[in-house]
């Protein structure tokens, strides 16, 4: 495809004492790609993601995120990425507008930009008139969509989503994924971990981690072909069965 590489990892490793949480993983993610990062609990997904977000220093190996080195330039990395955790990461005792203002503000957007963004988000999420509502009184699906929109409010190069759709009904999940597609069309790279295999099929490419290694990396269609499976579920099970370590 020859597109710009936004994330590249080369033999990236993280050890905690004797335990190798992430074992020499290598991969590249292109601009605008939706990259699925799969693995059973304890496979090392979160640790890998934390290294890429600049929250944790690798033990060895190389990685760049948005063109910046994870060892030396994590301040610059932090400016270029967005992050949404499985816990939604919104302040429930603040209003919709206050949440937007806070997160946009800490990424250094100007007051004018924040105002525009607030109006835009309210329109996109059909939250007009709800700007002064406390987040805690919004339905779960809305909270989640708002959390995603806020994670990309500063137009980052990459957004990291850590199991963003946990505990949400299928319709909301579908709506959520349409937001992800929109962001990807705007050129934002999506790096997403998930437990739902139907969601894995929405991704452009998928990597599957087993015991700290990446055991498979390809488009969902190719993976199903190579593993002669009918669904991503089967691919995942075939690989996950090989796992030696558990949580």
């Amino acid at each position: 495809m020859g597109k710009e590489k936004v994330i590249s990892a080369n033999e990236l490793t993280k050890k905690f004492g004797d335990f190798t949480a992430v074992d020499k993983i290598s991969f590249e993610v292109e601009k605008g790609e939706i990259f699925g990062f799969l693995g059973a609990n304890g496979a090392g997904k979160t640790t890998a993601m934390r290294m890429l977000c600049g929250l944790s220093l690798p033990t060895s190996g190389l990685a760049t995120v948005a063109g910046y080195d994870v060892y030396k330039q994590n301040e610059l990395i932090k400016k270029s990425i967005g992050y949404m955790s499985q816990k939604f990461s919104l302040y429930e005792d603040l209003t919709v507008r206050e949440n937007i203002r806070f997160y946009a503000g800490i990424y250094g957007l100007s007051d004018k930009q924040i105002k525009e963004k607030t109006a835009l988000l309210a329109k996109q999420l059909s939250l007009e008139g709800e700007e002064k509502t406390l987040v805690k009184s919004l339905p779960l699906g809305w909270k989640q969509k708002l959390a995603f929109s806020i994670a990309i409010v500063h137009d980052p190069a990459i957004v990291f989503l850590d199991e963003p759709t946990g505990g949400v009904d299928p319709i909301t999940r579908r709506e959520f994924w349409s937001l992800i597609y929109e962001a990807s069309e705007r050129g934002i790279t999506i790096f997403v971990t998930t437990h739902y295999m139907d969601e894995a099929e929405y991704c452009n490419r998928v990597s599957i981690m087993v015991d700290g290694r990446i055991d498979a990396l390809d488009s969902p269609a190719n993976l199903m072909k190579n593993f002669s499976a009918n669904s991503m579920d089967e691919v995942f099970l075939q690989l996950a069965r090989k796992a030696v370590r558990s949580e």
Binding site: L55, K79, Y83, S85, F88, S89, Y91, I106, Y107
Partner: peptide
């Protein structure tokens, strides 16, 4: 979980 998000921020 907001602490994580803030720590990822600049």
């Amino acid at each position: 979980g907001t602490m994580e998000v803030i720590l990822v921020s600049p």
